[in-house]
């Protein structure tokens, strides 16, 4: 199973709508990086509104993908992390320190634009 990645101007938009298993997550990491490479996108929004579990593995994949994208010159914002998921991450001791977040897709795009203008 593959997660669709949409392109909008200079941005890539991803909405994860499925219960992520390890393979899908790794596949997504590869897909996103090659898409950034091909499209030259400068910003990425990953919307997690429909994700109801993020365990330490998925958190690591997401954290890594943010760092990797940054290395390739694309800023990433995670949006729509559910309260239950956020609390679980905190309990796990995962703080995703270097990751930008926003309440929803719209706010995420605003945040990206601000970051990129600076």
């Amino acid at each position: 199973m593959r997660i669709p990645i949409l392109k909008l101007h200079n941005y890539l938009l991803i909405s994860i709508q499925t219960d992520l298993d390890d393979k899908t997550a790794i596949q997504f990491q590869e897909d996103l990086l090659s898409k950034i490479h091909k499209s030259g996108a400068t910003g990425v929004v990953i919307d997690l509104t429909s994700v109801d579990i993020i365990d330490s593995f998925i958190a690591k994949v997401l954290g890594d993908v943010v760092t990797m994208s940054d290395l390739m010159g694309a800023k990433v914002v995670l949006t729509g992390i559910q309260p239950a998921v956020a609390m679980t991450l905190i309990d796990l001791g995962i703080h995703l320190k270097d990751v930008q977040t926003a309440l929803d897709l719209e706010q995420g795009l605003i945040k990206l634009r601000q970051e990129l203008e600076e």
Binding site: D52, I53, I54, D55, A84, M87, T88
Partner: peptide, 17 residues
């Protein structure tokens, strides 16, 4: 509650992994 459901599911995920 939904939060504890997420906690339990996440814990199982960690154990299973």
């Amino acid at each position: 509650g939904t939060v504890d459901q997420a906690r339990i599911a996440t814990a199982i995920s960690e154990l299973a992994r």
